[in-house]
């Protein structure tokens, strides 16, 4: 005889604020939701919006930890709501929007603007440096192990968790953060990218780049995609030091 346990009542405290409403101010609102088997925070938030308060705002697209839209602070730590099971948490859960990014409303934030600036600033695309583009030319072959390594870093979904988990960037917002450094590491590995070490140094060889990282490892520990951020930042640090040495 299996014992049927009565479901928990989850107390969900949400930090709510609408910056466009002049009369609004940041405040915590509590919702109570009956827990179900296999429930994720994505389901909880939809439950709230459908049955308790349809004005609650939050972002979702894929529901499967792929798009990176639903990043938020869960009990103070950045993570993706859709891949967070309520069964792993206490019955009392606090939700807040990620800091640093532009707040749209409640849990909804605009990471796009920040990420776009970052990508433009770090030029996160292949610099083939061909004088004339030849679309008929076959792409150079790549060692599968290297392709895998690059692919591993390409899995970043720009959810912003590493940015919200980084103490350095909270204090010094001009720091590029793990998301930026990971992208640079990705292009630095890519043999199709013809940028020299010195050009990479120009991008991240300062205190807004890799030398600003204080190794708090918030990024490494909160990344929902388990990217090897700690070791890639260490790799870049060594590369940039070598570049400084040979110049």
């Amino acid at each position: 005889m299996s014992e049927e346990k009565s479901p928990r009542t989850l107390k969900i405290d949400v930090l709510r604020y609408d910056p466009n409403d002049k009369n609004d101010f940041p405040h915590i609102e509590r919702f109570e939701v009956l827990e179900a088997d296999g429930m994720t925070l994505y389901i909880v938030l939809n439950e709230i919006r459908e049955h308790l308060d349809n004005s609650l705002m939050f972002d979702f697209v894929c529901r499967a930890g792929i798009c990176g839209s639903c990043s938020m602070l869960v009990n103070g730590r950045p993570t993706l709501a859709c891949s967070t099971l309520t069964s792993k948490l206490d019955a009392h859960i606090t939700l807040a929007p990620l800091p640093l990014f532009k707040l749209i409303k409640d849990l909804s934030i605009y990471t796009g603007e920040w990420m776009r600036y970052l990508n433009e600033h770090l030029e996160t695309w292949i610099h083939a440096k061909e004088e004339v583009l030849n679309f008929d030319k076959l792409e150079e072959r790549m060692d599968p192990a290297l392709a895998d390594e690059i692919y591993e870093l390409d899995r970043c979904v720009e959810c912003g968790c590493c940015v919200a988990g980084c103490g350095t960037i909270q204090m010094k917002p001009s720091f590029v953060g793990a998301v930026g450094l990971n992208k640079v590491a990705r292009y630095h590995l890519d043999p199709r990218d013809k940028r020299s070490d010195e050009e990479y140094y120009e991008l991240i060889g300062d205190e807004n780049g890799v030398f600003g990282c204080m190794t708090l490892l918030g990024c490494e520990d909160v990344c929902p995609k388990d990217l090897p951020l700690q070791s890639k930042i260490a790799y870049l640090r060594r590369m940039m030091m070598k570049t400084a040495l040979k110049n």
Partner: peptide
């Protein structure tokens, strides 16, 4: 900011710093 961040995160390595 850093004080609130480390208190909120409850993250050992940030607190070590």
């Amino acid at each position: 900011i850093i004080r609130e961040h480390t208190t909120r995160m409850q993250h050992e390595d940030s607190s070590l710093w």
